[in-house]
Write a protein that binds this DNA or RNA. Structure first.
Lengths: 211, 211
DNA sequence: ACCGGCTTCCATCTTTCGATAGAGGTCCGG
DNA sequence: CCGGACCTCTATCGAAAGATGGAAGCCGGT
């Protein structure tokens, strides 16, 4: 397309991963890593300077601000760079918020180096780059809409996962215990289980709730 | 100590991480990465050739054989290389088995590059190299022995976390439901909780069971 | 305006869990 | 050899949780 290299910002809290990404991308003549950020805030600030084409962003930044929020902050302005999520995890709970936040692509760290470079180029052109397993998840999600939990259901299930009793959940959300049971009953039907612990296990493996 | 470089084998299923480790270690004149393995079995085979001083091993290898088993296989012979665990997770459920399996050290991937090289040298001398947070965990563990779950208790709790009922757990482990309840009662006491879901939540956050 | 999904609430009945207290067995280390 | 963890099992009782079936208000889209 053009003869100027694609300018990349690496945002990951692991120095080793940054070094790995840099090493992998350094073999590509049309891609240049021009900056790194070890924390999400740094990435947001650095990306705002406007001399970045693509941000490679980890979702998991220590315990602070996560990559999803940082993504939203970065893409929320004119002429903003594209954001490619590069993470170890491929759970629904991570993928969907990231895409909603405006990420252009979603890669897994176990991707082969070639795919990584290809995804950077795809993202630089403004097109979407998804890892195959991520694409699978999205398709499955679209095919089985019944699996999706409502906001309230997700909220209830989250508290269940924290070990609260129905009564405690009711208190927390200002509901009666009976209402909590109603929500749970529907959750069980959707997930195809018949106990709270099984629901947590299934939802966790499906990535419907955060670990 | 000597003028021959320390020969290192990288065992990690992520090409990016391998590249990162290689890049970081390449700046150290006394350390040489002589081989890589993308799967645990490869690492075991490669390490058996006897020309390796230190293995940098990820615990999390896809879904197959895990790093702990590979570690046990590698160190179980004379003149075997030292094994340094390098992983993202610092949960008790990972650390203790790895050390029991014969790992010489346990590092986290967010460690600074200098620490990594230092740990490799330490391991090459046969001394233990632990990341500070890992060392903290071990100390805490030693100070509060009551928190430790027995093998059976961990086993039961693991099945609880998968959503099984007491009866189902009994069937799985060839126990009566009553026995399962006994184990659970002791688990609740140790963890300071009073329900199965709360036990799973606490144990997960403490890293006592796998996610 | 009507329909459907979401949310909230209710009551009853059955099943499962958890608390409690005891007891016999194995196996290891002092 | 003995004490002490660990594992197993028993039994009862009250407390949660789950199944079932219904009902009503709210809101967005047709």
């Amino acid at each position: 397309m053009t003869d100027v290299p694609i300018r990349v910002l690496l945002a990951d809290d692991h120095p080793i991963v940054r070094a790995g990404l840099r090493a992998v991308l350094s073999t590509e003549p049309d891609i240049e890593v021009v900056a790194e950020a070890a924390r999400a805030e740094e990435a947001v600030v650095r990306a705002a300077r406007g001399d970045i084409d693509v941000v490679l962003m980890d979702i998991q930044f220590g315990k602070d601000l996560n990559g999803t929020e940082a993504t939203a902050a970065i893409v929320g302005r004119a002429g903003a760079p594209r954001v490619l999520i590069v993470t170890t995890y491929d759970s629904d709970a991570d993928i969907l918020p990231a895409i909603e936040a405006g990420a252009t692509g979603y890669l897994l760290k176990d991707a082969p180096p070639e795919d990584l470079a290809a995804a950077v180029r795809t993202a630089a052109e403004g097109r979407t780059a998804l890892a195959p397993s991520v694409a699978d998840r999205l398709m499955t999600r679209l095919r089985t809409p019944g699996t999706a939990l409502t906001r309230r259901e997700t909220e209830v299930l989250g508290l269940v996962a924290q070990g609260l009793s129905n009564q405690a959940i009711g208190g927390q959300l200002h509901l009666t215990e009976g209402t909590v049971k109603s929500h749970l009953a529907r959750i069980y039907t959707k997930l195809g289980v018949d106990s709270r612990t099984a629901a947590v296990a299934t939802a966790t493996s499906l990535g419907l709730i955060r670990r």
